[in-house]
Simulated assay, not measured.
Amino acid sequence: MQNRDLLQFWLYPSIKNQKKITPWVKWLLYMSVYQMKMLDRVPDHAVINEAVNLAKEKGHKGIASFTNGVLRSIQREGVPSVESIEDEQERVAITTSHPLWLVRRWTKQYGEKETKEMCETNQKRMPESIRVQPMLISRSEAIKKLEEDGFTVEPSEFSGQGIVIHSGTIVKHPLFREGYITIQDQSSMLVAELMDLHADDMHVLDACAAPGGKTTHIAEKMDNSGIIYAYDLHKKKARTIEDKARSLQLTNIKADGHDARKLQEIHEAETFDRILVDAPCSGLGVIRGKPDIKYGKEEKDIFNLRKIQDDILDHLAPLLKKGGLLIYSTCTVDRHENDEAVHRFIGNHPDFTVEDIQEHLPPSVRHRFKDGTGLQIFPQDADSDGFFVTRFKKRSK
């Protein structure tokens, strides 16, 4: 639930003396207060009556009485104002239901204004985006079909294959069911766009590939030529890549289960023209679409994941051909996993440089490129996920 902490703040005065509240009762109160204070379709008295009946049905008379008392009190007296919270960062944390440790961390990294905008944007609905399979249908053809069927759409500036959907249910549309398009966030479309792919005998490694959105985009950019080795730690997830490839009629992907930190066991040095490391990360850039992430993460997770990111990059560097490109991406907005990981890698691998990709970026995020590090997209930048991507080049000599 996106607003859990705010609802908890509103409920606290009414339940603070209760030693223990059964989880289902607490969630019943959350949902009821949400309807009363954040929606206007159902009258308060109807919300309260429904909650009391549910409490009586699932619990007992005492729980029903407690539920009625709490909600009647809120109906009568209202809820506390977040303006009563003096600490600015704590106020942002409660108002947007983000953990205080995370708000403080982002504020230290990016400042109060950027952090507040990011947290507020994470509470808003994000439009869906899709990618056409260009060997089966053009973007203009797909847009025409969708508009004829009542969808409101526009071309994405992130990819020539991308379409942003403002209204319409794409999973029910024939274009999706018949494999003409795939669902992919706009930010992640940048990965394949920045890999400088060609329709020839390229050998590409996607080291952390599941569920396969970027892998299949790479295959499409290669016009279904060459070969892409796509790996995931779990064989079951590797099969989802194969399924996605089949649905899009792509045949140049070879998927398997293998640890990205052990791929030297099956591939020789300087095998690949391109390597993608879409690294395991904290996922703090996709809170908007997956709000549970913000409640389940701890600060220590960021540091634990960074060790894995470093190990993957170090292990895969020798597999890239001289003059080849290594793309590193994450769906997080934390500098420790992004900027700092880049600086460490360059420091330990002097045969790699960070390329200036600014001219290849969409205008809306071009200003976010940092020379020597890469591109950090925030959720508020382009109605897309928070995302980081950089492109390393291995020296020819």
Rank of each mutant, 00 (worst) to 15 (best):
M1C: 06
L11I: 03
P13N: 00
K16T: 10
I21P: 13
I21Q: 03
T22L: 07
P23Y: 00
W24E: 12
W27I: 04
L28A: 10
L28C: 14
Y34Q: 11
M38N: 13
M38E: 02
P43T: 00
A46Y: 10
A46Q: 15
L54P: 10
S65G: 03
N68P: 05
L71G: 11
Q75L: 05
E77C: 01
G78L: 02
V79L: 07
S81G: 10
V82L: 01
I85Q: 11
E86K: 10
E88Q: 08
E90F: 07
A93S: 13
T95C: 07
T96W: 01
S97L: 03
S97I: 00
W101F: 15
L102W: 05
K108N: 10
Q109A: 02
Y110C: 06
K116W: 04
C119A: 06
N122L: 13
Q123K: 12
K124N: 08
K124D: 13
K124L: 13
M126Q: 05
S129V: 03
S129T: 08
I130N: 06
I130C: 03
R131L: 11
Q133I: 00
L136H: 10
R139P: 11
K145I: 09
E148N: 10
T152I: 09
T152A: 15
E154Y: 02
P155Y: 01
F158H: 14
F158T: 01
G160K: 05
I163G: 10
S167G: 03
R177G: 07
R177Q: 12
E178Y: 09
T182S: 15
T182H: 11
D185N: 04
Q186K: 14
S188I: 00
A192E: 11
D196F: 08
H198V: 02
A199I: 14
D201A: 04
V204C: 10
C208M: 06
T215Y: 08
A219P: 12
D223G: 06
N224D: 15
I227Y: 14
I227E: 15
I228R: 09
Y231M: 08
K235R: 13
T240I: 04
I241E: 04
I241F: 05
E242K: 15
D243S: 06
K244D: 09
L248F: 08
G257S: 05
H258L: 07
D273Q: 03
A279E: 07
S282V: 00
G283L: 00
L284M: 12
G285C: 12
G285E: 11
I287Q: 05
I287E: 03
I293G: 12
K294R: 10
G296T: 00
K297H: 05
E299F: 15
K300C: 11
F303S: 10
R306A: 11
Q309E: 05
D310I: 04
L320Q: 12
G324M: 08
L325T: 00
S329M: 15
E337H: 03
V342E: 04
G347S: 05
E359S: 11
P363S: 05
R366C: 09
T373S: 11
A382S: 13
D383R: 10
S384K: 00
D385I: 01
V389Q: 06
T390G: 04
K393R: 15
R395M: 08
S396Y: 08
K397T: 07
